Simulated scan of single mutants.
Amino acid sequence: MSEITRGAIGMPFEMAMESELSRRQFHSIAQALLIERDRLRAEVAGLRTGYEAYEQVNAELKAEVGKLRNAAAPLGPVNGDQLPAINSKVLIHLSSCDAWVEHTVVGYYAWEDLGANEYLHRVFVRVRDADGYINARLLKDVRSAAALGQGEQS
C-alpha cells in the first residue's frame, strides 16, 4: 500500500467527503484496494490449493515409503540359518593385529566353488568396522560377537 493510499484512507471523513474531487479520489482508491484485495485472496486460494496438493503428495509418498520399508524388512530367522543378520555384530580375525575385531554385517555375496561344482558356492560376509572400512570374510571365518562374549573361543 502506497503512502498516498494510506494518507487517503487515514484522512478524516469530513475532509474526504468535502468536495466532489476528493470524493472521486477516495472512491477511486477504495476501488483499487478492492481489486488488490480480490487479487490477494485469489493468490492465497491458489497457494492453499498448492499446499494442499503438496500435503497430499507428501502423505502418499510417506505411505509408499512405509510400504517399501515393510517390503524390504529383513525376513525372520530361519531355523538353522548360518548367515549373521544384516547390522549384527560379528568378529573377524585381523592378521595385522593378530586379534578378533568387532565389525557390523552389511551384506553377503557368493562365488562359484573352486572345484567347479555347480552345486557348491563360497559364501562371503561383507562387514564394516567402526571407522567405516569395508572388508569381507568367508562365512566360515566369521564369529558371532555375542557367542564369543558368552565364552566361545576359537
Rank of each mutant, 00 (worst) to 15 (best):
A8T: 04
G115Q: 11
V105K: 11
F26P: 02
V101D: 02
A16Q: 03
M11F: 11
H93I: 08
Y133D: 06
V105P: 04
G66C: 09
A72L: 14
R39N: 06
E36W: 03
G151S: 10
Q82Y: 04
V90S: 06
D98W: 08
A147I: 02
L68N: 09
A16T: 02
V123Q: 08
D113V: 04
G149T: 03
S22Y: 09
A59V: 02
G132R: 00
A45P: 04
K140L: 15
G115M: 10
G66F: 11
I29A: 06
I4D: 03
K140S: 14
G115C: 15
N87T: 06
S19F: 05
H121D: 01
P77I: 08
R128K: 15
V57H: 14
V105Y: 03
E18Q: 13
E52V: 03
D38H: 05
L114H: 10
T5L: 02
A59T: 00
C97W: 07
T49Y: 10
H93V: 01
N117D: 13
Q150F: 08
L94S: 05
A42R: 11
M1R: 01
Y119H: 15
E20S: 12
N117E: 09
Q56K: 06
R126S: 15
N58L: 13
A45H: 15
L34H: 00
A99T: 07
K62L: 11
A71G: 05
A63H: 11
T49C: 10
A63Q: 12
R37M: 11
Q82P: 02
E18D: 15
R137G: 15
A45Q: 10
S88M: 07
I86D: 01
P84Y: 05
T49L: 12
R41C: 08
A59M: 09
I35T: 04
V125F: 03
N70M: 11
I134A: 12
G80I: 03
T49K: 15
F13W: 14
R41I: 06
S144M: 08
Q31M: 06
E64M: 07
Q150L: 14
G80S: 01
M15Q: 13
N58P: 00
G76S: 13
G80P: 02
H103R: 13
L75Q: 06
R122D: 07
V78M: 12
V65N: 06
I4Y: 14
V101I: 10
I35A: 14
A45M: 14
L120T: 03
A71W: 08
F26D: 01
S22E: 09
L34K: 03
H27K: 11
R6P: 00
L120Q: 06
G149L: 14
T5F: 04
I9R: 10
S144E: 07
